[in-house]
Design a binder for these strands. Structure first.
Length: 273
DNA sequence: ACTGGCTCCTGAGGGC
DNA sequence: TGCCCTCAGGAGCCAG
């Protein structure tokens, strides 16, 4: 399930192959993603040169030559983008493909179809899906003071705040649990009851977890394959996620799990307070 | 302003 | 071997 590191890995994997290339052919097999893939996708992209791919949170923004609109993509939780040749057969759940050449075909694969592919008029950052997003976790603006200030009136669990894209983008369920473990904070603790010093620790933990994951190419779970077809290996390094009942890597206490906002959460009852 | 609950969807995994 | 059930999860959306 793509979190920010997976999206970043995909971006880095794809860019060197695709930037400056022209789309020769567009195939759409299944329009029904979160919202339908635009009907004019093929007509608009045919013969169009790709200028750049950027990332904002978990969104990918595709910029095209001589075109105001950008193409906005999200991989949902089971989506992936990968490169193929013309002759490699369409897999189940391949929903659309951009053919750049006989040996360079980009395929969008998404079994659960929670992803999206939409036109976003310029300026793209003002698109409703992007306009209210919080800072990138690696931006200077994201730090302990920022988290502390944004949570003074938030009575919800600190884990929910961490996963709120209006607060900070790119921290999904897995990395929220991991970051809170590193910072020694229990996921259910009320966000307003976490002090500045602990938020400073948390901001650093978020960056550490994401950075480590990006370095190892994203977490490997069922559906993710990197943009160049190589799976990531971060899953082996998880401290708490999916480890209920197993020993804490730090103190040996059994890891506990709980449900927060319909999301499974994991923590060490000794290391996290 | 903030909160929790619902929703989309398929595949995996458990029980029998 | 197969069927049915439950669950997982990103994030927009809405009602309270």
């Amino acid at each position: 399930m793509p979190e920010l590191p997976e999206v970043e890995t995909t971006l880095r994997g794809l860019k060197p192959h695709l930037i400056g290339r022209k789309v020769n052919e567009v195939k759409v097999w299944e329009r029904r993603l979160r919202w339908p893939i635009p009907r004019n996708l093929a007509q608009q992209l045919q013969g169009r040169r790709l200028l750049d791919i950027q990332r904002r949170g978990k969104y990918l923004i595709w910029q095209w030559e001589a075109m105001e609109d950008a193409l906005l993509m999200h991989l949902g939780m089971s989506g992936s983008l990968s490169l193929h040749t013309n002759s490699s057969p369409r897999r189940k759940h391949d929903h659309f493909a951009l053919t750049f050449s006989r040996t360079l075909v980009l395929r969008y694969h998404d079994p659960r179809r929670f992803g999206l592919c939409l036109w976003a008029p310029a300026p793209v950052q003002q698109h409703p899906l992007l306009a209210d997003l919080g800072p990138e976790p690696f931006a200077a603006e994201f730090n302990g003071a920022y988290l502390h200030q944004r949570t003074r009136k938030r009575r919800t669990a600190v884990k929910n705040v961490l996963m709120d894209s209006k607060i900070v983008v790119g921290v999904g369920n897995i990395y929220a649990s991991e970051s809170l473990f590193l910072a020694g904070i229990r996921p259910r603790r009320g966000a307003h009851r976490v002090g500045l010093a602990r938020y400073q620790k948390l901001a650093a933990a978020v960056r550490q977890v994401l950075k480590k994951s990006i370095r190892s190419g994203g977490t490997t779970l069922q559906d993710f394959v990197g943009g160049d077809g190589q799976p990531g290996y971060f899953a082996q390094q998880l401290h708490v996620y999916g480890r209920a009942g197993e020993a804490c890597t730090h103190c040996g206490t059994a890891i506990k799990s709980c449900i927060l906002s319909q999301r499974s959460s994991f923590y060490c009852p000794t290391c996290q307070i």
